[in-house]
Write a protein that binds this DNA or RNA. Structure first.
Lengths: 115, 115
DNA sequence: GGCACGCGTCAAGAAAAGCTGACACATGCC
DNA sequence: GGCATGTGTCAGCTTTTCTTGACGCGTGCC
């Protein structure tokens, strides 16, 4: 994973994906909540007051941008629970860093698969 | 303008606007082009190969987020030309900076007017 | 006048993102 | 069994964003 470096400069397509992932009030709040503590989906849905299907969608967007990770765990009473936590990402937005990122930006600008 | 400070932390609503402004391949390229040199609309449209109405829209989005500025100038032959240039913005994206931004994020998350 | 070049805006369609209400599956407990 | 909890997905709607092709205005030059 080349993006967790300090002083992150990164590929244009990836940067675009990160920007898209953060460009939503719900997703900002989700990141904030997970930065406080890891959590599983249903509880996170209750705390953030987001419906589960919607939260699910937002989490996937964050995960596919590499901003959060998930793992399926078994609770003591045998329930399967998906825990999410933030990755320690670090991005810098300046005119120069953006200029650099555009050098490795696919011509079409279409959203591509990363995982 | 409280956002040009070094080590920018900023209001959640404003951050959201910046993220929205940068979340587009065209707009990234526009910022990159303007970071190289200020330019006027028609020429920028030719160089970036974006139609003028579309470029106009993108520029407004960038400008309303405070990432570029414009000024109307008169060329030697009397034509009115609108020049755009980037502002020296600096934003940092980390779990913590986002957590902080969400504290000043309007409940609804609806896009508001800044100017 | 006619053409080239600037500026801007509008309507309308196409595409993407956001959101909801179902539905499916599993487990443990009374 | 019935209910609570957890997981996930799907179709379909609404809203936003993106994009194009007209228009309108102005100037200078031949």
């Amino acid at each position: 994973m080349p993006e967790n470096d300090p002083d992150a400069a990164c590929g244009g397509d990836h940067l675009l994906k990160v920007l898209g992932a953060l460009n939503n009030p719900h997703r900002l709040r989700i990141v904030a909540a997970l930065a406080r503590s890891r959590n599983y989906v249903s509880r996170l849905a209750r705390e953030t007051e987001i419906s589960r299907p919607l939260l699910h969608m937002h989490l996937q967007r964050l995960e596919s941008a590499g901003l959060v990770t998930s793992s399926l765990e078994l609770s003591s009473d045998g329930k399967a629970m998906r825990f999410y936590e933030v990755t320690p990402f670090f991005y810098q937005l300046t005119p120069d860093s953006i200029a650099q990122a555009t050098e490795t930006l696919s011509r079409t600008g279409q959203r591509e698969e990363t995982r």
